[in-house]
Design a binder for these strands. Structure first.
Lengths: 343, 343
DNA sequence: TTGTAAGCGTTATCAC
DNA sequence: GTGATAACGCTTACAA
């Protein structure tokens, strides 16, 4: 923008009767000494002109844009919305701004966003979106980030991702084994599993947790028990319908709450009592989990906190400190959708 | 970022054996003629060096940052998430990037974000967040935006806002009168109303629609019938509990779906049949409206489309065309939470 | 404590 | 068709 009447440091300097350098020193809180009286003159000149320093120009010389690029899969998904909120709140005091990009899980689009962010000279890159299972993508992204790092950039990961970088991690595998164990303790031996899009690294990890727990606990490991629900409400309903027509089970565990809610509704509509005939459990504990057709038993993944801790990790790295990976743990939230298996 | 080994146009020019000017011309798709052979040399030099033009530097000289600032109240609210998604998709092809800021409905915070965006030289400002009922805020914001405009900036509004600017508007008042009429047609004469935060312009408008319709249709206009639900799930539940203890009614209309869902759950938990004893209607038609305790009858507010049309409006203005205000209309989605009033 | 001037990486103007 | 060179608005040696 601009072209019109933008007021620059030069105007302030002229009005205050000082050099641009001096004006700069006071406006940028430089450590370089400036006398109290000139400082006041500059300040009031800036005030009266409504001067706002051009951060692009500043960024060009300091090589610090005070911006951060965030990659999510879909900003309209509350899961990511919460993370971004946490990030934003976490960096707000430090005077950074956030660029947000939704990749739609498209490898090409995601790579392009990363390139765009680099061109935009962002100081840091946050991968809130889980990695994509695509060898080309993984290779290209690694190379891109590597180059970005050499140019002084910082990358942080808040998801399951093949990228090597400092991270705040939620133990997705552990979460799933724990949920399966929870169900097994209540007598469920045939636990159906609704998975998300197979191209997402997080789905692979969660599914791995399910499979490992089923095996370790000696539950029925039957391929007919798993179905893709695409991480959506509708997909969850469709998946459970497919499962119902194909095999039988006393519990269904979904890889996220959206699918669990969709499945619950489908079951209820079909006259299958939840949890009377079939128990349903989810993962994430999104805000509406409590307000579905049946209040959902699930595991809480503290997304807002994930964002906040991501922000503080980032800030510490940007500040030159040593990064320390962090682990966030879940917690089972017992509501009404799970009960003991019918005998 | 950077400081390290960033490759600039100068490196590309040297490797290609041309001047920086020529290199610039090919990298920026200038209309200035360049011979095919030198173009190729520059392109391959850029390729081999992994050159990515520094958009900050470009922005500084062209006075175009290719960035847009978006103000929302809360990015973790799917309502705003959807709008931002629509915006992003709408501008994606035009090579703009989005800065997103959540104001938390705090006037001071919002003003600061606007100032920050200006300093960041955004080419446009999008107010997806509704205005705040605060005279100081309205005055300061108007002044700020006025100055921003004089400097060449573009502002667009996608909400109920006192700011004078090109806009894409959803008829909130009309939506509410229509919902009240819908309920009245089904015999409801005592329609309780759960409103949102009074400081939001949008709540004032929606409430105005409710009141006007109640009056026009001769329904019971009783102050005891309205209660604040803070736009949240929990607030909706609390509001209906308060209403239940204070007066009686056969229907409750909420200013958004979240509160309608919260209210529905509270009613069901208390053994009040929905819609048997009390009908419930919402507004927005968020994704989960269909998946609540009772599938919700509501009015669809196409948020994603709002964002998309906002983007195209913006792009047209940025392209120098005349802005034309747009109106988006709602549509009642009949599900199961509303029925005729008990006789 | 203040000022001068050299850049940051581009694009734009003007010669050639 | 190509190349110097002056901006853009700021920070930062280096001088004074």
């Amino acid at each position: 923008m601009t072209g019109g009447s933008r007021v620059s440091l030069r105007h302030v300097a002229e009005l205050a009767g000082v050099s641009v350098a001096t004006a700069s020193r006071v406006m940028s809180d430089s450590s370089h000494p400036v006398s109290g009286s000139t400082r006041d003159r500059v300040l009031s000149a800036a005030e009266s002109l409504g001067f706002e320093p051009n951060r692009l120009a500043r960024a060009l010389v300091t090589a610090r844009s005070q911006t951060i690029g965030v990659i999510v899969h879909d900003i309209s998904d509350p899961y990511f919305g919460d993370i971004v909120k946490g990030l934003e709140d976490g960096i707000h005091a430090s005077d950074y701004r956030l660029f947000v990009a939704s990749s739609d899980r498209d490898p090409e689009k995601e790579l392009n966003y990363v390139r765009a962010f680099q061109a935009q000279q962002v100081d840091a890159l946050v991968f809130a979106a889980s990695g994509l299972n695509d060898p080309t993508y993984e290779r290209d992204l690694t190379a891109l980030v590597e180059r970005y790092r050499r140019a002084g950039g910082v990358a942080v990961v808040l998801s399951d991702h093949s990228l090597a970088a400092p991270r705040v991690r939620f133990d997705n595998r552990g979460a799933l084994t724990e949920m399966v164990a929870y169900l097994a303790e209540r007598g469920h031996r045939r636990v159906a599993y609704i998975t998300g899009p197979p191209e997402l690294a997080v789905c692979e990890v969660r599914f791995g947790g399910y499979r490992a727990a089923v095996k370790d606990l000696g539950l029925d490991a039957d391929e007919a028990l798993v179905e893709d629900g695409r991480f959506t409400l509708r997909g969850g309903g469709e998946a459970v319908a497919t499962l119902l027509g194909r095999t039988d089970f006393t519990a269904v565990l979904a890889a996220n709450d959206l699918m669990a809610i969709g499945a619950t509704r489908e079951l209820v509509v079909r006259g299958v009592a939840v949890p009377g005939s079939v128990s349903v459990a989810g993962l994430d504990d999104i805000a509406i989990a409590e307000y579905g057709p049946v209040p959902l038993t699930t595991m809480r993944l503290p997304t807002y906190e994930l964002g906040q801790r991501g922000a503080s990790l980032l800030l510490r790295i940007l500040d030159g400190q040593e990064p320390d990976d962090q682990l966030i743990v879940g917690e089972i939230i017992e509501r009404e959708s799970v009960t003991s298996a019918p005998v």
